[in-house]
Design a protein around this nucleic acid. Sequence first.
DNA 1: GTGGTTCCAGAAAACGTTTTCTGGTGCGTC
DNA 2: GACGCACCAGAAAACGTTTTCTGGAACCAC
Lengths: 380, 380
Amino acid sequence: MPPDDRTHRPARRVGIKDVAARAGVANATVSRVLSGSADVRADLRERVLRAAAELDYQPDILAQSLRRGATRQVGFIADDLSNHLIADIATGAESVLRAHGYSLLVMNSERDPTLDPANLRVLHARRVDALMMCPVEEDDPDTVAALRAINVPLCVIEGDLPPSVPASYVHSDHRDGMAHALRHLVGLGHRRIAVVAGPVRYRSARQRALGLEDVAGERRRGLVLHHVETELTPQAARASTRAALDVPGPPTAIATGGDGSLPGVIAAIDDLGLAIGEDISLVTSDPGDLGPVFRPPLAAITRDGALIGATAAELLLERIVDPRTGARTVILPTVFEPRASVGRVPARRGAGPVRSPAGTPGALPRPRPATPRSGTTPRR
Amino acid sequence: MPPDDRTHRPARRVGIKDVAARAGVANATVSRVLSGSADVRADLRERVLRAAAELDYQPDILAQSLRRGATRQVGFIADDLSNHLIADIATGAESVLRAHGYSLLVMNSERDPTLDPANLRVLHARRVDALMMCPVEEDDPDTVAALRAINVPLCVIEGDLPPSVPASYVHSDHRDGMAHALRHLVGLGHRRIAVVAGPVRYRSARQRALGLEDVAGERRRGLVLHHVETELTPQAARASTRAALDVPGPPTAIATGGDGSLPGVIAAIDDLGLAIGEDISLVTSDPGDLGPVFRPPLAAITRDGALIGATAAELLLERIVDPRTGARTVILPTVFEPRASVGRVPARRGAGPVRSPAGTPGALPRPRPATPRSGTTPRR
DNA sequence: GTGGTTCCAGAAAACGTTTTCTGGTGCGTC
DNA sequence: GACGCACCAGAAAACGTTTTCTGGAACCAC
């Protein structure tokens, strides 16, 4: 058999000069007709359009981009694309961009700070017209340098960059959301509340801490707000939460912020044998579809990921169309959704937390054994 | 003030001819050095490399793409990017592609069959080197026509295209997964099991139905497997599930397949006042992070989204590198994870289902009121 | 009739690369 | 010393567009 047995025929694309030849005009005329830029005599325009339709001509965006100096591509550097909220943001952005003839080039930095500058370089070389990103580290010098080099409109989502790099911002009002949730808990009678939030190196955690301070500043008598800062892994959140609960006079309510912390918080509550919504109230942040389905349904501070992405895209398009447009900052609202996981203060539980039957205080049990536990009682 | 007050300085990019000029050689030599294609005298190579480094030269991928006829971009048409599993697939694909110098161009078809051909045309015009997609409709003629026109390696994820379009496939072994789950239930003593699956127009639903038939064919005496086909909306799933449960001699276990059905199934179980893991056993498909956190923890048939995406990307890269490589089909395993939501058959519940205190049998209650319900009892 | 506009379309340059083509140099061989 | 060949680097073509440049034709005014 012949070695050069390519089954994959190249099948030359039809180009502008094919259209020009068929219409009996010059390339330039075809281009003018199709881009509608200048005046072309009616009969020629007609011929060109017919020829283009007959050949099913599709302009080569690559060549257009090279010539025009604009790719109509927008880059998105996600810190964790598999995160539900980030995926929603990408979805919202793509939808708006697609409607305007732009495409979205996604890169994932996998929460690895060294990937941000690398990805930025790729997108620079690909000459994206604009850039949206969720930076892993806000002050990473390599990232900042890479951002300086790539001179296109930039929109940062949930993060604060040094003022030396000009950028639009789309933020969520975590401060208000947390304050709202805390006031709700206070209104139900809770006086000892723990806020389990991520490290303050994240803007969202800082904002939630401000929300906490807002409520603390309202000087409700007897109110004790405890700020628990934890890394956003299930293990860390579990340990921190458990430490916060396992004290004399423990909190009667927890408000969590931070993406990965929820499973750890729930595990810690389980560890201590507490019933959510009864022994302890729980407010979560962005539980996704888990919130309403959980038992009890989880009260939550939520935000609209698709709206965040769409807003970022619009901010960028506005600056692409008119480069004189300045960078803007948009703060989108959060909404507090009360559900059954928050309840009144339990009647009597001041002395100390209920101990989990299994496990000694020091050693954390292995996460999530497959056998049923507390929650629903085995027999009724 | 001058009207032409552009603050956005273009800041001409450094190109190959700048490097050539600084090194005192021709463009071609720079290109040869940088692409490592042909032999260049050592001293010249040295000069070129130094000049490129000094100028921080980054080749323009756009121009490279035009000249080489390859963009090093792969398009991904997702049917629902905000779906957790699809986001994982994108993540896995992007990771592999990035490691090979390729970028991922994502488009979302929002489960709208008419967007598939439109998105395909965009990606064609953008000259992607390969294409992965989750088709909304498997037999849509416009989609098939658009796929025919775009002559690049194609990998379809979870779907069957007509044989007229050549494609690689990455499938998940839903058949085996469902059979596995059903055998597990049978082993626990369950004899009346309902499989709530999506419409058979989806490949995944067809495969799960085959898994059901496999187990049915094993002729366990007294075994009744009930195939409930439902649209993948919470409302439809709720109604279908409720209808399946609300019969004399109801199923003692449910296995669900299909992305959006879980909330509806759970709602239906709630409607009838049944306790998951006690009154009725429940196996879900791909519950994401919800599975282990739910109470009781949800037994699940799961698959590795990132692996699916990575596999698709590898299949495509293999064909990009060597176009003579044929299309392949890969079936990835599913794994069954038993958890507390499946249990033994309840001792005595043959006469009929327990009625929900609220709601008449005919009218479905509004989904998800915010007040606590069954599940955890309000007082202990 | 000459000069100046205006209108419009073709020719050609440009975008930033890669690759083919061309040709000079140096060397070995007869 | 002529020829052939290998080696390597510069010149130029090519990728498929858009845009500038050029110029012919028609029209008007003097």
